[in-house]
């Protein structure tokens, strides 16, 4: 009873909601990118690796320049670069997408852990004071939901990207190309759509978003970097894309759900719930499995999913 009361109290609810939103932002960004590549027929399992590399590079640059913009920018650039490498492997060289994706993932874990030690040794620097929250006037005063309107600037961008991605995919020529290339690349090619270019562009967009997601995690959300800090968020994003049936507009629900459970892990500890910490830490992952199990049964994949395209 005591616990319930403390959970429902205004300050606690505000923290929970704010934390939920913050936790869901990297997932939203990564999942938007992944939904675009997958809609174009490419599975990028390297998402996690790209996020990690983005997070690391952004952190190092932000720490040294003490500048949010350069941090985010370099994170994006790093994500883009890795994604381009991935794109070159799977689109041009037609490497098995699972092999390349797993390779990029393990590479991401290894290289960031390696470089972290080379750069910082046994130190764990914290990038303080680089970023701040942007409160929206008036809205950030509303009780209970005020934390929604007091977020990092990147969070607003991420939320705005959801309808933008939907619009891109369903209302623009480029989106038409993506959908055609993922469903029937032979037809798209026959009608003069450049399959390679379209897929490269989706992979690049995805790299930018994955890099931004990583950068948000390391410099906006946490202000530090640790080994493998994405903790499966890349894979969760891939799961959420399936959950959303490859429609960007539905990504928010899945990401929000992850955010709820993620912020609950710290929220319930603060609220003094007597459950071992480890069980709370499991919650987001269990939630993803449960939700996939309920909503993602026998989903229909894009027809050319995971297949490299080759003429003749």
């Amino acid at each position: 009873m005591e616990i319930l009361r403390s959970i429902l109290s205004e300050p606690f609810f505000v923290i929970l909601l704010g934390g939920t939103l913050t936790a869901s932002i990297p997932i939203i960004l990564a999942a938007i990118g992944e939904s675009l590549v997958e809609k174009g027929g490419v599975l990028n399992l390297g998402l996690e690796g790209e996020m990690l590399i983005g997070a690391f590079v952004a952190f190092v640059i932000a720490l040294n320049t003490r500048n949010l913009f350069w941090g985010l920018f370099s994170g994006i650039a790093a994500g883009l670069l890795v994604a381009l490498a991935f794109g070159y492997l799977v689109i041009y060289l037609k490497v098995n997408q699972i092999v390349a994706g797993l390779g990029i993932w393990i590479f991401g874990i290894g290289i960031t852990s390696l470089l972290f030690r080379v750069f910082f040794g046994r130190r764990f620097p914290i990038a303080r004071g680089i970023t701040s929250k942007t409160a929206i006037p008036y809205l950030s005063q509303i009780p209970y939901i005020r934390s929604v309107f007091n977020q990092h600037i990147v969070a607003y961008v991420a939320l705005a990207l959801i309808p933008l991605a939907w619009w891109l995919l369903y209302k623009t020529n480029f989106g038409l190309h993506i959908r055609a290339v993922g469903e029937n690349p032979v037809a798209a090619d026959a009608h003069g759509v450049n399959v390679y270019r379209t897929r490269y562009l989706t992979v690049m967009l995805e790299g930018i978003l994955a890099g931004l997601a990583g950068a948000f995690l390391s410099i906006c959300d946490l202000s530090f970097f640790v080994d493998n800090m994405t903790l499966g968020r890349g894979f969760i994003a891939i799961g959420i894309v399936m959950l959303a049936n490859w429609n960007p507009s539905r990504i928010f629900y899945g990401a929000f759900l992850f955010g709820v459970f993620y912020s609950l892990t710290s929220g319930l500890q603060i609220a003094g719930v007597n459950v071992p910490r480890e069980f709370l830490l499991m919650l987001p992952y269990v939630a993803v499995i449960v939700v996939l199990c309920i909503f993602a049964r026998n989903t229909r994949l894009p027809a050319a999913f995971c297949l490299p395209y080759e003429r003749e």
């Binding site: 499966g232 969760i236 891939i238 830490l281 499991m282 269990v286 996939l292 199990c293």
Partner: peptide, 29 residues
């Protein structure tokens, strides 16, 4: 989940990986 509902095993085994990490940590502590 894979056999019955064709839910992608890559995601689920990965999620179970993190659950195992926390579950074993709980047991050993």
């Amino acid at each position: 989940l894979k056999a019955k509902y064709e839910i992608n095993e890559i995601i689920v085994t990965m999620m179970m990986d993190f659950v195992a990490l926390n579950f074993t940590a709980f047991l050993v502590r």
